[in-house]
């Protein structure tokens, strides 16, 4: 289990957008997207969609979901759960906290409300 890393101040990620944290920075083996929702919350998922090669950070963030920019599968940002085809595998979550006015990402540590990011959950 890794320690938290500082990924910036909350103002640095505009609401409704996301920032990608590359493996070099996080030490995790895949890029991680840190989302700032319009409800003011921060969430983190593996950036690459579980369907094909698309960056979820470039998706449409609405409420507490993100819609993939390629084929429109949506994922629940809180749990990583996939909400519709064509993707059928949940996205892996990572824990994010706001600590002393900084966004702290815990790469590889599941978010509190995460579903198990293992196999398909089509149903």
């Amino acid at each position: 289990m890794s320690d938290g890393i500082d990924v910036g101040s909350p103002e640095e990620i505009e609401e409704g957008t996301a920032r990608i944290v590359e493996p070099e920075e996080s030490g995790f083996d895949e890029p991680i997207a840190v989302f700032h929702t319009e409800t003011g919350c921060f969430f983190a998922l593996n950036d690459i969609c579980t369907h094909e090669e698309a960056s979820l950070a470039e998706g449409w963030i609405e409420g507490e979901t993100v819609e993939c920019p390629l084929h429109s599968s949506s994922f629940d940002l809180r749990s990583g759960k996939v909400l519709g085809l064509p993707a059928t595998e949940d996205a892996r979550t990572h824990r994010v906290e706001v600590e002393d006015g900084r966004i702290v990402l815990y790469p590889g540590r599941d978010a509190e409300q995460a579903v198990r990011p293992s196999g398909p959950s089509a149903g």
């Binding site: 064509p86 059928t88 196999g119 398909p120 089509a122």
Partner: peptide, 11 residues
């Protein structure tokens, strides 16, 4: 494939 084979038995 849309889902792995095991999905059908599970459901």
């Amino acid at each position: 494939r849309l889902v792995p084979e095991a999905w059908y038995a599970e459901h």
